[in-house]
Design a protein around this nucleic acid. Sequence first.
RNA 1: GGCCCCAUGGACUAGUGGUUAGGUCACCACCCUUUCAAGGUGGUAGCACGGGUUCAAAUCCCGUUGGGGUCACCA
Length: 520
Amino acid sequence: MRTAPGQRVRTRFAPSPTGYLHVGGLRTALYNYLYAKKTDGDFIVRIEDTDQARKVEGADRSLLKTLEMTGIVPDESILHGGHFGPYVQSERLDIYRRFCRQLLDQKNAYYCFSTAEELEENRKLQMKQGLQPKYNRKWLPEEMGGTMPGSEIRKKMQENVPHVVRMRVPDYISIMFDDVVRGPVEFDSATVDDQVLMKSDGFPTYHFASVIDDHLMEISHVIRGEEWLSSMPKHLLLYDFFGWEPPKAAHLPLLLNPDRSKLSKRQGDVAVEDFLKKGYSSEAIINFVALLGWNEGEGCEREVYSLEELEKTFSLERVGKAGAVFNIEKLDWLEKQYIKARPQEKILDVIRPLLQSELEKKSTDMNVDHISSDEYLGQVIELMRERVSFEHEIITFSSYFFFDPEAYDEKAVHKRWAPDTNDVLRDFITVLETVEDFSADNLEKTLKDFVAPREKKPAFLIHPLRILTSGVGFGPSLYHMLEVFGKETVLRRLRKGLERISVPQQEQGGLPPRGIVIRD
RNA sequence: GGCCCCAUGGACUAGUGGUUAGGUCACCACCCUUUCAAGGUGGUAGCACGGGUUCAAAUCCCGUUGGGGUCACCA
């Protein structure tokens, strides 16, 4: 898609501060951001806080903060009192009122004194008759004898009766527009309700404020969720009333629950913050969400994109039309890809504080200088990065790198112990005591040389060694793990383990042996 | 219910009249291997249906079905 020469692309993300950033909202923000970056245009954020009742204190800041954490940063901010921030609609009320006045003067809008009860009753009646619920236009000026002095409308105004201002939708005209992702769409104005523009509390409705702001802020492309498609005719009518050129519209397919309804809480997390808290990285989240409804196409088989790469390759033309189920299986896979590729220092930054709090929890008197050194942690990272789903698991799923095992996985012990295991282990310890070079390679050689003349397979010792030193039956390569642990720690854990696990001698009948005792 | 949108395997999708319908995730099998992962190889599985148009249709048209959105002084 091309814009008129000289016309700069300007997009906006316009959340209402009613809660946390939703993943659907993140995708909308992302597409707006990407399109602006791609075309070297501007991306702005506007807080749509025209509903005083639903407004949540601090939600605007949290929204912005989360957005920033994912790398989506607005290009403009304005001064509010002492600080800079996004555009905020509640600070622009006089603007909306001025434009409302204009519409009233042009007779494109009118006062409406119908009460909420009347409206509700009317709506129910129409529903019962199978009609589309629509305002009955009772307060159209010609119905109420005009707006001249002495008229019903004037009287109500003088009495300060609460009222709203409604737009006057022309009868039976066809409203057509070309949606960037959906193509041509057509509506009949007869199906469009006389939308409230100004509420009785003096605040504008979304429809009114966003049209005015999009025009004033010179937004070139309105990119938003498909749930807004059916209010396009109202907006287009407003642009027409003002004689303004409407921005191009792009309605994105919705993000869906597994049951294909609009993505919502209840069927899992939807707040971006929750995903971040669980340990998903912003790179993976952005990558995942970008691919929900967009792809590079043309036989391109790439799945992993950084924000920078997306800025280069994104295009609105390649946004799909069908809703996409938000299925986190692929997010999990992406997260692993990122963990594998992430520079060690970055992981270190995340992990250091985690280890610190683990150490505080244990409050041991042991010397922790070695195990909390960057060099040691770096080794742990390299052994663990291919085996975890989240960075934090490098600490939480492998505490054996930092603490002696407090217990041994019983199942693993029963599976891996033979009647003579402890005896062989004891002999091997005496060999280990003499080993100078505690490297993985040498440990492997030592073990194999030890085991061969005894007619045992390496696995006979490998598994018990793993269990005694780590407490569990799975993990990184044993030799590399022992190298990282270090000789002193390995020997200490093995000796202690042998004291705690005993196999009754009379048990001869092969595996699995019975009667293994694990003491605390 | 009115209006609007949508429709390729379980999920995300490529495909714009002629392809053995391709890729990724998930799943299964095998290989590698001390375990767990990772990696490698292979596999199961798809054009919602019915009519047209055309020599030829996943692709174009119409209809049906199914799904979704929206009908607030909420956004």
